[in-house]
């Protein structure tokens, strides 16, 4: 069964049509890469799927049920969105990694946090490091594993490697590769990166508000 199904989705702001008649089916455990020119509507599409904004036309079905029928809070815990230029909040790394547990009113799983930190080559000691002392790449890695403290059903990645150097990109993609395995996470990534586009299992292009599945 498709985990995500977009039917005739459109998005309009005032008189400007950002997205029009988007139809897209994403299967469970799939890895879909979305590319296209800047300003074409890729990020808007991802934000709509993440319910950060609502489509102005069409329907979105998640696990067979219309998105409007879901509690946005519970949906966002299953369909997790990682921003293009994420911001860390609070004072230190711990505050960020423990936030998902805090909002679920459960205990912080420190072992899980350390394991994820190891995956993205962050030392355990960095847990108490003030966020203002982190580099851009480290911040991006912390933000990414913050989304993975509770494994989502769908992970939406919005150009997360843009602006990262080669070393940081490699670390981030090592983690993505790990998720592509049998983790049960469906990945939808927006990217401009040539290598990522070449490596994509399924590829769609968004241009002038239209989506075209390429493979």
């Amino acid at each position: 069964m498709a985990i995500l199904d977009l039917q005739h989705v459109g998005y309009q702001v005032r008189n400007q049509q950002i997205l029009a008649d988007i139809n897209l089916t994403v299967e469970e455990d799939d890895y879909l890469t979305i590319t296209g020119p800047s300003g074409g509507g890729k990020s808007t599409l991802l934000k709509i799927i993440a319910t950060m904004i609502s489509a102005t036309a069409g329907d979105i079905f998640y696990q067979g049920k219309n998105l409007n029928q879901y509690d946005p809070i519970l949906y966002r815990r299953e369909v997790s969105y990682c921003f293009q230029q994420p911001t860390l909040f609070g004072n230190d790394v711990l505050e960020n990694l423990s936030f998902p547990a805090k909002i679920r009113r459960t205990d912080f799983d420190k072992a899980r946090a350390i394991q994820l930190m190891q995956y993205v080559k962050l030392d355990e000691k960095m847990l108490t490091q003030p966020i203002k002392e982190l580099s851009g790449g480290e911040k991006q890695r912390v933000a990414l594993i913050r989304n993975l403290m509770y494994l989502p059903k769908i992970l939406l990645l919005d150009e997360i490697t843009t602006g990262l150097d080669a070393a940081n990109k490699a670390i981030v993609w090592e983690l993505i590769e790990r998720l592509k395995g049998d983790s049960g996470v469906t990945l939808i990534a927006v990217t401009h990166d040539e290598q990522e586009i070449l490596a994509a299992k399924h590829l769609a292009q968004v241009e002038n508000g239209k989506l075209e599945v390429q493979r």
């Binding site: 809070i73 815990r77 997790s80 969105y81 921003f83 936030f99 909002i103």
Partner: peptide, 20 residues
Amino acid sequence: RQQVLERLALGADIKNASKG
């Protein structure tokens, strides 16, 4: 704004997203 959006995207309710 961005910090609030990050919290919402992680599944926070609006009270948790606005706490600070």
